[in-house]
């Protein structure tokens, strides 16, 4: 059983902390002015203290984001540690906001702070949840889009959480689209320069 006395440092403690960011869309301001650092943490206890005191993602208004990134990496493509990277992206159906979104996001957060991506956890920069009217999105951002081995290891989404909590499994079972639903990896460079609304997938799992 966890001890009450000693805080449990996250695996990342020696090199960095995690930082939670909040974005609220205010069109009268520049994009960056709408992005706020909420806090940083480095223990399991502080993670839960934060998680239980902030609004659930499903209760945010459309246009808002939460981002959890390693301290020192800003949640934007332009950051030097993101610009060559990309994201594994899950787009959720509208009705999933009230049934599964919060669980999916929590599972994603646990995978990040627990460093559950084996030797490729260093490739992970952070994760983002976008609350959007047309469909919410959850993404894991990685450092180097050309690192096929690392990206595909992270993208074997079963490793985001063991069965029966696998996001990929839950997602596909819920929608009953086992062969049609893909979780795609998109390079930020392609997302930034896209002409239409769709970005091509560099990898698919």
């Amino acid at each position: 059983a966890p001890s009450l006395q000693a805080p449990h440092p996250l695996p990342t403690l020696l090199s960095f902390r995690w930082a939670l960011w909040f974005f609220k869309n205010d069109k009268s301001k520049m994009w960056q002015a709408n992005l706020r650092l909420v806090t940083k943490f480095s223990t399991v206890e502080d993670f839960w203290a934060l998680y239980t005191h902030i609004q659930l993602a499903s209760k945010l208004t459309s246009g808002c984001d939460y981002s959890l990134f390693k301290d020192g990496i800003e949640p934007m493509w332009e950051d030097s540690q993101n610009k060559r990277g990309g994201r594994w992206l899950i787009t959720l159906a509208k009705q999933q906001r009230h049934t599964e979104l919060d669980r999916f996001w929590l599972e994603t957060l646990l995978c990040l702070i627990g460093e559950m991506f084996d030797e490729y956890s260093d490739e992970v920069c952070g994760a983002v949840i976008n609350i959007r009217a047309k469909g919410d999105k959850i993404a894991i951002w990685t450092r180097e889009a050309e690192n096929r081995e690392g990206v595909t290891h992270i993208g074997r989404v079963e490793s985001w959480a063991p069965p029966p909590f696998s996001l990929r499994r839950i997602y596909k079972e819920h929608l009953g689209l086992s062969q049609k639903v893909a979780i795609g990896y998109q390079a930020h460079a392609d997302t930034a320069t896209k002409s239409g609304s769709l970005t091509k997938n560099k990898f698919v799992v």
């Binding site: 966890p2 206890e45 993670f47 839960w48 084996d118 030797e119």
Partner: peptide, 20 residues
């Protein structure tokens, strides 16, 4: 190998009282 925490370990802390 690299140090990791699994989800069950992390979830054990979710509803623990916090010492302030």
């Amino acid at each position: 190998g690299k140090k990791q925490y699994d989800r069950e370990f992390l979830l054990d802390f979710q509803f623990m009282p916090v010492c302030i």
